[in-house]
Computed example of a mutant assay.
Amino acid sequence: MELIGAIIAPFLPPLLDGIARKVRAMIQNRVGPSIFQTWYDIITLLSMDSILPTSSLAFRLAPYLALASALCMALMLPYGSDAIINFGGDLIAFIYVFTLFSAALVFGALSVDNSYSHAGANRELTLSLVFKPLFAITIGIFALKTGSLSITEIAHSVSPSISIIGAYLLLLYVTYVESGFIPYDIAEAETEILEGPLTEYSGRLLGLLKWALQIKRFAMIWLFASFVALPVAEGAIAFVLQLLVFLLTYLLMVTYESLNARYRLDQATKQGVKGIVIGVILMIIAWLGW
């Protein structure tokens, strides 16, 4: 199963985005592009040279750092019974590379002199200051209840309780937000700030960033699917159940996205703060043993 995971983690996400684009088109009564269109776009971009608006090393390294972070996130997750990268405390490492992804976007965007790029970086940073702690609190509830800092061990040993049920709902929410679906795609906001942090990127570097964003989305939803599926199954059956939960969650998120408009930054942060308050309450409930 780990070998299958190593294959699907980098190569399945763009195909899923193509399917998502087709679903959105159907909901909006359009024909839509081919399900392979996202792959076509990425391959085309990767074959092109990038136009560099600055000599900053941060600008050039950010896409590679973002892609490496996204891949690490995906490879730390269990596929069936075990993860490809599995070690004690890998939950801490997951949170680290998860945060590093956003940091790469921010540093890359701030390294170029462009107001749209800076606006996107500021939005990404603001959202990160709210939703990264929310993710840490949510995942901390699972760690507290299972007594482990291993993603695989947590996924296999979660048992129902009041705090865990609440943590599942919070994890689903923060997964949606961090997957960059509308109404939370505020940092990019193509119609407002021309893709924000990606504005000045082109060619190969833009292709790497778009690929990295798709892999990050895959990793977040697969994490949620793992926590749902692995407590009740093992081995090949667990992998199949993970995949089914993942696809169902992905399609539901795409459908919900198609029915919403983008939030303002202040609206999103208010929602995030409410989530943090709920998360802290659930953490206290978990600490009390419930």
Results as ranks from 00 to 15, higher is better:
residue 121 A to G: 04
residue 216 K to R: 12
residue 225 A to D: 09
residue 180 G to I: 09
residue 120 G to E: 02
residue 199 T to P: 07
residue 174 V to M: 04
residue 190 E to D: 14
residue 157 S to W: 09
residue 186 I to L: 03
residue 126 T to E: 03
residue 125 L to W: 02
residue 212 A to W: 00
residue 153 E to K: 09
residue 171 L to A: 08
residue 156 H to A: 13
residue 137 I to R: 00
residue 143 A to Q: 05
residue 148 S to H: 05
residue 184 Y to H: 12
residue 167 A to I: 08
residue 140 G to K: 07
residue 222 W to Q: 06
residue 198 L to D: 04
residue 215 I to E: 05
residue 171 L to K: 03
residue 130 V to H: 00
residue 197 P to L: 05
residue 165 I to E: 11
residue 204 R to Q: 13
residue 131 F to K: 00
residue 158 V to E: 03
residue 189 A to I: 00
residue 161 S to W: 10
residue 125 L to I: 05
residue 180 G to Q: 10
residue 148 S to M: 14
residue 174 V to F: 07
residue 150 S to G: 11
residue 132 K to R: 11
residue 162 I to Q: 12
residue 212 A to V: 02
residue 126 T to Y: 01
residue 201 Y to H: 08
residue 169 L to I: 15
residue 148 S to R: 03
residue 143 A to P: 04
residue 206 L to A: 13
residue 201 Y to D: 08
residue 175 T to W: 01
residue 209 L to T: 07
residue 124 E to G: 00
residue 184 Y to N: 09
residue 204 R to Y: 15
residue 187 A to Q: 02
residue 137 I to D: 02
residue 163 S to I: 12
residue 152 T to D: 00
residue 213 L to D: 14
residue 175 T to E: 06
residue 209 L to S: 09
residue 119 A to Q: 05
residue 190 E to H: 15
residue 161 S to Y: 09
residue 222 W to F: 13
residue 129 L to I: 10
residue 136 A to S: 15
residue 157 S to G: 11
residue 182 I to R: 01
residue 196 G to D: 01
residue 134 L to H: 01
residue 169 L to T: 11
residue 160 P to M: 12
residue 198 L to Y: 05
residue 202 S to K: 11
residue 221 I to V: 06
residue 187 A to R: 02
residue 129 L to K: 13
residue 179 S to V: 07
residue 218 F to W: 11
residue 152 T to S: 02
residue 221 I to D: 00
residue 169 L to C: 14
residue 227 F to S: 00
residue 189 A to G: 02
residue 208 L to W: 14
residue 192 E to C: 09
residue 158 V to L: 12
residue 130 V to I: 08
residue 148 S to Q: 10
residue 173 Y to M: 15
residue 157 S to I: 08
residue 152 T to M: 05
residue 173 Y to E: 11
residue 215 I to S: 02
residue 201 Y to K: 02
